[in-house]
Amino acid sequence: MLYLEDIRTFYGEIEALKGLTLEARKGEVTCVLGPNGAGKTTTMFTIAGILKPRTGTLFLEDENLTHVSAQSRVRKGIALVPENRLIFPQMTIAENLDTGALSRPLKDAGIQEDILKMYERFPRLHERKEQMAGTLSGGEQQMLAIARALMAKPKILLMDEPSLGLAPLIVKEIFNIIRQLNEEGVTILLVEQNAKMALTVADHVYLIEQGKVTFNGNPSEIHQDEVIRRAYLGSEVS
């Protein structure tokens, strides 16, 4: 579904992605793991079009999106749930959801319907829909950020560290949501540091280090590889 080939992204003269090749298959949860500074968020920004790669190609389904702007990529079906959530704090929850649908045509009658669906999925957002989003707790903000991204009716949902800075119990809840979304057929590309949780939902795993893919396989293979297991999961995991 989403296919990146030999992507090189630079920050000035610093090469952050050094020829990254990666695929996210339809209907699957693809998970990108890696230490701090490996280039996980850079990968997300490159896919979303916020950073432009110097070389390489990016395909969504059969369409080449390499030179398409961030704005159009949202319209083409790539939605990002950014790191640290980044909701609009001074706008109400309902308005935040509206902003998610800005990429859809005005005549789309399904928008109101989808908002109701989101409230059904996240009842806590429904209760607080006229509240300023800045007053929500971290977990609720994460839910809002996910719901807002879903409002764009994406073909693929990019999630950048959804567990960051949340309490363990909330993290579990968020991953339940991810699992549920995947069961409903949403394709997800997930970037995480919390490898343990990520592996519970992943269908396919990439490890990246210093801007390169160092491992590519399914989660069970990770469990078999002693070195990787130690590095990412700690030794107590069986």
């Binding site: 979303a48 319209r75 909701i87 609009f88 998610g100 807002r148």
Partner: peptide
């Protein structure tokens, strides 16, 4: 209006609005 919504989203959080496809 939707344009108004986009303006408010931008003014509230410019970088977050970029992820919503607001130019």
């Amino acid at each position: 209006t939707r344009i108004g919504l986009a303006i408010r989203a931008y003014s509230d959080h410019p970088s977050a609005s970029a992820y919503m496809g607001i130019d």
